[in-house]
């Protein structure tokens, strides 16, 4: 169940909007952040808030890659596989991260901390190879840098930024 405070905030925004449907991505993000991912309960709540059908929300949720319909970890590592990063990635930052965390691409670590997702160019080509973690860009990636970054993240208890 969505906490009253979040629901109220969203309802207020929706009521103030001339075209409530334009808020659907924001509402999906908000519920995704609350639940950790956009589960079926969340999806139905999005539909109810915006007077859409669950199908109509699903049509959008399955289009976008930053809406997660399956569980993800606290940190989502969007490892860039764009062409520039690819050029620098031959020993592969992706391979390295996966090995380090003991997961395959698309999987989440058993402790629920990290999910690794190969992602289209994140727009950080001048720092290739790069990755995006919860809305923050990291690069150029080296094994040492990756070790350090993941270590830091593990110790962070702060809130997640909007887009993971």
């Amino acid at each position: 169940m969505l906490p009253e405070e979040i629901r109220h905030r969203l309802e207020t925004r929706i009521a103030a909007s001339a075209h409530p449907r334009e808020l659907v991505v924001d509402v999906m993000y908000e519920l995704q952040n609350h639940y950790g991912f956009l589960n079926d309960v969340a999806l139905r709540e999005v539909a109810e808030l915006l007077q859409l059908t669950p199908l109509e929300v699903e049509e959008l949720a399955t289009f976008y890659d930053f809406i997660y319909r399956r569980p993800v970890g606290r940190f989502v590592l969007h490892v860039c596989d764009g062409v520039v990063c690819w050029m620098f990635e031959e020993q592969s930052a992706l391979d390295y991260i996966c090995k380090l965390l003991g997961v395959a691409p698309g999987e989440t670590t058993p402790d629920g901390q990290f999910t690794v997702l190969p992602t289209v160019c994140v727009g950080y080509c001048d720092h290739a190879p790069a990755m995006l973690i919860n809305g923050k860009l990291y690069g150029p990636l080296t094994p040492e840098f990756i070790d350090r970054t993941l270590e830091e993240l593990r110790s962070i208890s702060c809130d997640l930024v909007l887009c993971r």
Binding site: L52, L55, E56, E58, T62, F63
Partner: peptide
């Protein structure tokens, strides 16, 4: 009617219901 639609993207487009 609003219970059948198109989901997914690219070559994984799926036409159907939410469930």
């Amino acid at each position: 009617y609003r219970d059948l639609g198109v989901m997914g993207i690219a070559s994984r487009i799926y036409y159907g219901r939410f469930s």
